[in-house]
Computed example of a mutant assay.
Amino acid sequence: MPLATTDSPLLLLPGLWHGSWCWSEVVAELAGAGRASVAVDMAGHGLQARREPRWYTRRSYDPEAVATEVSPVADVHLDDAAELLTAQMRLVGGGAPVTVVAHSASGIVLTRVAQETPELLARAVYLTAFMPASGVPPATYNGIPEAGEYRLGPLFTGDPAVTGALRLDLATEDPAYREAFREVMYHDVAPDLADAAMGLLTPDAPVGITLGTTTLTANGFGSVPRTYITCSRDVALRPAVQDRFIAEADAAFPHNPTSVADLPSSHSPFLSMPRELASVLRDLG
């Protein structure tokens, strides 16, 4: 099938702890369908993580260090993540608009970029992602009634105000901890694939990315075509919260309603159903 040159390139942005690697099967499926795409790392993640925290690579496990060591990405904030994404978009698009697909908390970064540089976006796509309303801290949505039990919260190690990170204790040998994380993020992913993915995660996600807010305007974020891909089996970001994001955006910018697609997936459809996800993304402008 020839390359769909009339479509903007897809730039795939992973969420917290994940790197560009998580999109590999989706990129392959898109290539087979003739749609150009590239996966990148978010600031503080993957190859942008600088180095692993010391506690993670020590030969002997030190729970005190896990809980207290300041993260090497503690100084990464939403402004930094938005600046990097903007540079990636300019590179991939050659100055022309691109379609950005943001997963989970990287939606916070996409929203900031959509507000600041809407001319670089052909479409903003939120894959079971945070799409916070104007001026609302993203963490607010973890405590709303629609969110139910926040199952990721108990899995964080240490105080983010001390470590500067939302830290996963991926060095632990506690099978219950690892199983709890798998159930939240990958419950419909084959166990061996889920284990492989966990081995590639960056243990520290910069908390500063999740603390930033963005004031949204009609000429900024409100002017960008947007699509929300809901995941109806997601227990990390509940479907009711996903629906809340859509409703708030449409109420704020009714002239530019959100188009919606749905996948019967967990929080990680790029692993559990890459072909189906690619099929949705293939046809986006």
Rank of each mutant, 00 (worst) to 15 (best):
V92F: 12
H18K: 04
Y228S: 00
R244E: 07
A67F: 07
D250K: 09
C231E: 03
G148Y: 00
L10C: 05
A196Q: 13
L30M: 07
M198I: 09
A43Y: 05
Y56K: 12
A261D: 14
Y228C: 00
T202W: 15
E183A: 14
D159P: 09
M89Y: 06
S266Q: 03
G46Y: 03
L263P: 00
P269S: 03
L84T: 03
T227D: 01
R151S: 09
A105V: 11
T258P: 02
Y186R: 06
R90S: 09
S265L: 03
D262Y: 13
V224W: 01
L170N: 05
N142M: 11
D174Q: 07
T258N: 04
A133Q: 02
A82N: 06
I144G: 00
A39N: 04
I108E: 03
A33M: 14
E179K: 13
V136Y: 03
E116T: 14
D188G: 01
A161V: 07
D159E: 15
L271N: 00
A147L: 01
P160L: 07
W55M: 12
A67C: 10
D188M: 10
S106M: 05
A180T: 05
L3W: 09
T163E: 06
N219V: 14
A43L: 04
R51C: 12
W23V: 01
G34P: 04
V73L: 08
D262Q: 15
P72T: 08
S279H: 11
E248L: 04
V66S: 02
A39T: 07
M1F: 10
E179P: 12
P2C: 08
T99C: 10
P118K: 06
I144F: 01
P274L: 00
P160A: 09
L166F: 14
L85P: 01
A139C: 12
D262C: 14
V40W: 10
V241G: 00
M1W: 12
E116V: 13
H187I: 06
V38D: 08
T6I: 15
F245I: 03
M42T: 15
A251P: 08
L193S: 10
L216W: 02
D7W: 12
A102F: 06
P72H: 11
Q48M: 12
T111S: 09
E119A: 13
L30H: 07
L11C: 03
V76E: 07
A190D: 15
A43P: 04
P257S: 08
A249R: 08
G148K: 09
P14R: 02
R112W: 01
I108N: 00
W55T: 08
A67R: 12
D80Q: 02
D7M: 13
R275S: 15
A122D: 10
D283S: 10
L211S: 14
T6N: 14
D192S: 13
P203W: 11
L271K: 11
F156E: 10
V184Y: 03
A161G: 13
H255T: 15
R151W: 09
S268G: 03
A36V: 14
A251L: 12
V27W: 05
R50W: 13
L84M: 12
R244W: 11
E149P: 07
A33N: 08
V27F: 05
A49T: 01
R35K: 09
E69N: 05
P145I: 07
A139K: 06
L168S: 09
V113M: 09
G135T: 01
S104W: 03
Y186T: 13
A87K: 09
I229H: 02
E29V: 08
L166G: 07
V241M: 03
Y186P: 00
P203T: 08
T163V: 04
